[in-house]
Design a protein around this nucleic acid. Sequence first.
DNA 1: CTGAAAGCGCTTACAG
DNA 2: CTGAAAGCGCTTACAG
Lengths: 332, 332
Amino acid sequence: MATLKDVAALAHVDVSTVSRALNNKAYVHPETKRRILKAVKQLGYAPNLVAKSLRQGKRHTIGVVVPSINISIFGEIVQGMEEQARNLGYSILISNTMDDPQIERECLARMRTGLVDGIVIASTGENMRLLADIASENIAIIQIVRNQSPQFDCVAADYYECGYEATQYLVKLGCRHIGLINGHGHIRPYEERYQGYKKALAKAHLQEYVVAASKDGSQYFEDGYQATKELLKMVPSLDAIMVATDLQALGVIRAVKKAGLSVPEDVRIISLTGHPVGATLETAMTSMQVPSREMGECATKLMIERIESEDHSAIRHQQIVFQTMLMTRETT
Amino acid sequence: MATLKDVAALAHVDVSTVSRALNNKAYVHPETKRRILKAVKQLGYAPNLVAKSLRQGKRHTIGVVVPSINISIFGEIVQGMEEQARNLGYSILISNTMDDPQIERECLARMRTGLVDGIVIASTGENMRLLADIASENIAIIQIVRNQSPQFDCVAADYYECGYEATQYLVKLGCRHIGLINGHGHIRPYEERYQGYKKALAKAHLQEYVVAASKDGSQYFEDGYQATKELLKMVPSLDAIMVATDLQALGVIRAVKKAGLSVPEDVRIISLTGHPVGATLETAMTSMQVPSREMGECATKLMIERIESEDHSAIRHQQIVFQTMLMTRETT
DNA sequence: CTGAAAGCGCTTACAG
DNA sequence: CTGAAAGCGCTTACAG
């Protein structure tokens, strides 16, 4: 690739003048500018972004740290992020942690070494100290989906309301024994959804039946399957199951059918992290749809605002909350 | 973050000595080295990778350009790539083109500006000239899934065999009117699968029934749904449908059921780009499973080999072909 | 309006 | 075994 120097030589000016002309940083004589642009065109010059980064201390790159992008709500979030970033002249550096704190630590350590201006993370919650260290080095941190600490910005959905509304909907349909298959551990979305569920049940004077999915991320079919077997053993009269994700819900459907029951006649099912794909399933999934693409776009916009506003530390942290939307389909 | 200079000051040596000690580039007196390492530890020093990149002309970053990572085989491929890259000390810069040649062009132009050492791409096929230009600038190019041009390395599956084997399997089951819902345009996997299908049908003296999915990427439910309606109108006695992806297959199932037919009794269905999620669907999907994770890992390994072997142009191009595996499940 | 110089944080010949 | 110097490709005060 041609460099600034090549352009400068061809246009018979100093590199600094070329730089100014290309960045519109100061007046450059129109005639000079014309010559420069001609040279740029002739050489097919494009600035070396790495050199620019080193000099300006800005990478125009955002790190994204998520459990998994494969068959998960994060796939759509990342896609929204990437599109928005591209439109605003940024790139996306991505890491999948599989919810393993050790991998998360490695990814963060790497990103910290000047690779990114900011990090958008759905964290395990085990590396909050490291995150704080990174933030103190003027790398912006934004949490997505999982609001693990109030000390950082966060873009998430209203999980309490999500749990509350889903439960109330099932109650209105006449369900009296509503099970909740919830994620494992101190992940905020799980806790808040549980609180919403609890509140709605109390209001209807119903009892709660909760099973935690296995501890390794809870995104999978097997979790839904096993948890449902447990629930059905515990509560033979179960008439509804609320479950964290669409994929788990597939496990729920299979377990319910295997028990000789049918969906939705005997057991109604609702997924609490609805993905558009739910509409296309064989028995279309009723779910609380999460606006994942919009959340990704929002996180990117907020991130770029943070990055470009210089004084990170002075800014008050924002908690942006999206509403989920009940999509009634065939499983209820 | 601390810099080399800080470490050098604390250890009372020159920055060059620190650099050598940390990179094991030359003998450094053990005692000096000890002092340096102590200083590194004390300051929590980690090298600035951007500066290193600029100096060495290596980015330790791989660009990935794919149609979409959301609910697609590419999600798993990218995950495999990312894990492998992380283990080998590389990062992944990702772009989703949505199969739009214009977006693809933008992404490539951006990556070209010093951001990456190499690009792994599942291309639209519309920017091959640009790709060749980029390759000539010593940025390695590896094609994944879509072998659009023999002038670059490629990691793909054996699509011909995939189409052939799937068809033959259906023939053995007794199917006599086998439809193929294929992707649109000159995308190699589609063309090769069609050839395999054609060959197997000819061998069994059967007629072919082919419908192309809509032209916008063919990854979607709606494509499968519409194409199936068309096929059923065309061939009322249809008894099997081969379709490009699991997600399209969901559309096929819905259309078949809507026509009052059942799966697999009346119509058997097989997906030609099987994803593990197929096993979890309500009617588990028979499919030709593509080893997507392994393909991603392989592409990354090959890429890093290329990058680190200096003389790109001299190397013969490799075409690495993975076998697909028939997974018989409930839709057949 | 433009040039010369310094510097971002590293690495790497070149001396010694 | 180690230091001083140059340079990767840019940007940005500082003069003029």
